[in-house]
């Protein structure tokens, strides 16, 4: 995800909004087990989702402040790391958001299939 020097086009802006909108869901989905920020970045990246780290850490903090995550510092290793896990509230939110996401994908796919030229996009 190299930054392009030219001003963002309308498509770039829409794509950014779309990605940002799904990031919270992606993050919640990977925090059933405890992870620190960088291990989360790598895990998402291994699964094909490149995230801007400058956006991820603030997001983790916001989710933590909203009570969706639990966090704790681990100072035992070579460097202190902050670990995050889904809280109970977070697990409920993830379940709700997953349902919402599936509905949204189904609906959007139906809408795109009706549109000529919009049907050959994979997930």
């Amino acid at each position: 995800m190299a930054e392009k020097p030219q001003p963002a086009s309308a498509v770039d802006k829409l794509a950014l909004e779309l990605r940002r909108g799904t990031l919270a869901l992606a993050v919640l989905s990977q925090l059933r087990e405890s992870r620190h920020g960088y291990s989360l970045v790598r895990r998402l990246s291994e699964r094909g989702l490149e995230v801007e780290q400058g956006t991820l850490y603030p997001l983790l903090r916001r989710l933590d402040e909203q009570g969706l995550l639990n966090s704790r510092w681990d100072v035992a290793g070579s460097r202190p790391r902050k670990y995050y896990t889904l809280s109970r509230q977070g697990a409920e939110a993830l379940a709700a958001m997953t349902g919402l996401w599936r509905d949204l994908v189904r609906t959007t796919r139906k809408l795109l299939d009706e549109t000529p030229g919009g049907s050959d996009e994979p997930d």
């Binding site: 620190h36 920020g37 960088y38 780290q53 903090r61």
Partner: peptide, 20 residues
């Protein structure tokens, strides 16, 4: 009230990224 915690986390995250 956020400063120390954020500073510590970013320092650690950047260190990890660099090591990697």
């Amino acid at each position: 009230r956020q400063r120390d915690d954020v500073r510590r986390e970013l320092r650690s995250a950047l260190g990890d990224a660099l090591d990697n």
